[in-house]
Nucleic acid binder design. Structure first.
Lengths: 154, 154
DNA sequence: CACATTTACATCGTGCACAATGTAACTAGA
DNA sequence: TCTAGTTACATTGTGCACGATGTAAATGTG
């Protein structure tokens, strides 16, 4: 065997290391917006959905980001405390909490737009290489999620 | 603009999502070994180094896994408590803590060997595709780290 | 040798992730 | 309408990550 257990042979470690390295780059850029990386992802979803005028529920964010309420509830409370979003319990169904952007939250988008650009500039990797990597990742994620649906109790 | 801020266009989100999906697969496999995923990575390094009879210091693990003592110290304490490793302060340099595998830690390798195999079997993605992804990730990581060394205060 | 600096970990605080559990609100069936 | 079941979110506890700081040991300098 050419060592299945060798760290360098484990795709998991490459994923883990690259993810942390990329997140680290984002961290310093996002510090200027006073956002953490997961908070930034939540804001991305909210900015995206703001166009379609559909109210966003906590479960919508969870479905998009693959996060549960255990992660989202405290995160959203912090975003609300910073005045970027509001959390309102629905009147038609009191189980549901509706998330909407405040004016400040909407405005933050202008600053956030610069983040991906700055990140790409600071990244000494060919853009087409990143694009290829992203497409590979998306394909793998899709495969894993379809598979997960096929065997719900596996 | 074709929306730089769209979630699906952000490589960071693909990385984040795939990393968590893969980690999740590992989690259930590693539960049988009573290991978390980062603990498993530490054990991989220790098994690797056990061959060369070099003593492993906390900073060696940190360099390999890109983790600092704030993460490693409590993690290593937990591994020690489970009897897989021993933590001994060096006699020649009392700042250094030397990590070594216990007999139980060495033996666990036999069980751990099955983990990557089981993971690959349970993953409905072509192996050569994973290999390509891994190589892409390694290349990106390398590029980012070389770059990081070039600009230490950037 | 005295003293500043560096090194190697340890500690602390914050914020995720996630499993497990709790709870109130809605829904469906008899 | 009573009740069993489901849904949507909240809470709790554990374990990372990581920045910031602390501390003792080693090293370097005059």
């Amino acid at each position: 065997m050419d060592d299945l257990l060798a760290l360098d042979n484990q795709i998991c470690f490459s994923l883990y290391a690259v993810n942390r390295a990329v997140t680290s780059r984002y961290r310093s850029l996002l510090a200027e917006l006073d956002l953490t990386y997961p908070q930034y992802l939540v804001m991305l979803v909210l900015w995206e959905r703001a166009r379609s005028d559909q109210p966003t529920r906590v479960s919508d964010l969870g479905a998009r980001l693959r996060l549960d309420s255990g992660t989202l509830t405290p995160l959203l409370k912090r975003l609300a405390q910073r005045g970027l979003i509001s959390r309102v319990r629905s009147l038609v169904d009191e189980r549901v909490v509706t998330i909407s952007l405040t004016e400040e939250g909407v405005d933050l988008r202008e600053l956030a737009i610069q983040v991906p650009q700055k990140l790409l500039c600071g990244l000494d990797v060919a853009p087409e290489r990143l694009l290829a990597l992203r497409n590979e990742l998306k394909a793998v994620l899709k495969a894993m999620e379809i598979q997960g649906e096929k065997v719900p109790n596996g």
